[in-house]
Design a protein around this nucleic acid. Structure first.
Lengths: 327, 327
DNA sequence: CTGAAAGCGCTTACAG
DNA sequence: CTGAAAGCGCTTACAG
């Protein structure tokens, strides 16, 4: 059916070894004249190398698996795009799997990726679940967590420092005259969200009244519902830092529906800084995570066996309109 | 290194054939006692089947490739999630590639997927470029376009009827009292966007003054820039249908920045109906594409060799706030 | 510089 | 119901 190396060898009057050397530019030299004949034969026959056969023999597939906690979340989606770009620079393909915040599904995706013999595994996990990246490492597959790592977790983690940026966000809102700055966290804190909440707690409590801690699921819907309740109950704070862009977008939607002016009545900031955050209404002021750098470091960790350097830039503040700037 | 079928066979005192029959539940029967021994050995050794070896021998990888014109566009992103769900029901993995609206990159991704021996290929393309799905079919790989097909294009296309829905959108805006209804199209029309524009043109011209046709790239940024210019120039229409959610989100952002009230000064609708459109500020009134049905049909086409049925539901109108409803 | 051959880990006729 | 063996399409020692 399909054209094979053996076909090309036959047509060019050489051996499969030589054809392989030509197709891969090595590892052995080939005489120029022979090379020409092989190339001509391959072109005539329309030869396309079978990567599966290569993978079985060479023990490397050129594919990396990416498991995402939630592909609908703009932060995870943007991270996936960054990872894809980093992989492409190394001529590596990406398989994706969406865990939907379900530990069982996450485990299942990892099993399937391991069976597919991926050359590496990147896990962008949510709270809970097993230490799947460590399982993969135990199976001989280089693996890393990005953004979040379960506790306890043995595999390396690539994550930016949230502390500095959240403190800057609190200071920024103070600069707009706010004394009470609330925080919208996840259903239970872990990983980066816990870091952000801690940083906020320390910064916001340092002076003035006890700050308000809000919680909801990581979804637009949940954040919108919570926001609608706060507005209806008259308990909406005047300044709020949302743990994620996803939640901030939900807040924006509900505030718009209820006619609550932002930033007039509510100054809002959030902590992912996805590309989406620049085109909300109003535009979100954010602490922007260095997604490309995180993806590059994770991929280098897996594919180049680079050590996890500490050189990741910290998330930094991007002031737009929702905090009260440019108002 | 890794545990193989042969290891399990040795441990259980059987042959690789029997182990294979047990692992795959067929195609030959195995005596219950033998099966137990095999299963026990596999569990003890922590055997994990090598899908690459299986793929080489069986000629099927259990992987489908998805090429996306633009992974940042919420419509394409939502479609990718639908495709992944449809594939998961068939226990099939997905590889993704992002063409970034570049025909050369699209071609490159397809080559790589073919080399990786995907069992099928789904192309969500943009204007221009080669008939890559037809190339894949010629190479023996079942392929289909979803949403858009290049001209001329030989491979099957899965796409919902846009005509009815756009007409309904025009009627809906008329019901809000609008006579002049503008349309924001792509840089040059083709495929579904051309269908939408045609439907608008016919419906909007049927009575009253000549309608306004606007154009910009499929990006939030381009739509925001255009919107800012229209507002500054005092030429912003009072009713507008955007070809895509992506563009509508850009319009919303620029309108918010300029203080142009929506729907008060501008009634806006758009034509994708992604999940994102429900959480913009204000919420977008849309014609919602049947993404899950489209994905399911495309996957059935490839994997079940099902004929492209005409039973796809048409995009339907979801009225939210941006058109003037609930105002 | 080139060729004949082994072997990656499976599945599947073929024989018993 | 079970086993010995061929073969999927490559890469890579090994010999020449």
């Amino acid at each position: 059916m399909a054209v094979t190396l053996a076909d090309v060898a036959r047509r060019s009057g050489t051996s499969t070894a030589v054809v392989s050397y030509v197709m891969n530019n090595g590892p052995r030299p080939v005489a120029p004249a022979t090379r020409e004949r092989v190339l001509a034969a391959a072109a005539e026959l329309g030869y396309r190398p079978n990567r599966i056969a290569r993978a079985l023999r060479a023990g490397t597939t050129g594919v990396v698996g990416l498991v995402l906690a939630d592909a609908s979340n703009p932060y995870f989606a943007a991270l996936a795009r960054s990872v894809e770009r980093a992989l492409e620079r190394r001529d590596t393909l990406m398989m994706t799997g969406n865990a939907g915040y379900l530990p069982g599904r996450q485990q299942h995706m990892v099993e399937r990726f391991l069976a597919a013999q991926v050359d590496g595994l990147i896990v962008v996990s949510a709270d809970g679940g097993a230490d799947v990246a460590a399982q993969a490492v135990a199976a001989g597959v280089p693996s890393a967590y990005v953004h979040h790592r379960p506790v306890p977790g043995q595999a390396p983690l690539v994550s930016a420092d949230n502390d500095v940026a959240v403190r800057a966000a609190v200071e920024h809102l103070r600069g707009h005259g706010h004394r009470r700055i609330a925080f919208l966290s996840g259903p239970h804190d872990a990983g980066p969200v816990a870091e952000r909440r801690d940083a906020w707690q320390r910064a916001a409590s340092s002076s003035g009244p006890e700050p308000l801690l809000l919680r909801c699921d990581y979804s637009r819907e949940a954040a919108a519902r919570l926001t609608a309740e706060l507005i209806a109950g008259g308990t909406m704070p005047r300044a709020l830092i949302a743990a994620t862009d996803e939640q901030a977008i939900g807040v924006l939607a509900a505030a718009s529906a209820a006619g609550l002016p932002i930033p007039g009545r509510l100054a809002l900031m959030s902590c992912d800084g996805t590309p989406d955050s620049a085109y909300t209404a109003p535009a979100l002021s954010v602490m922007e995570q260095p997604l490309d750098a995180m993806a590059e470091q994770a991929v280098a960790l897996l594919l180049d066996r680079a050590p996890a350097s500490a050189s990741l830039p910290a998330a930094h503040l991007v002031a737009r309109r929702s905090c009260g700037c440019d108002a």
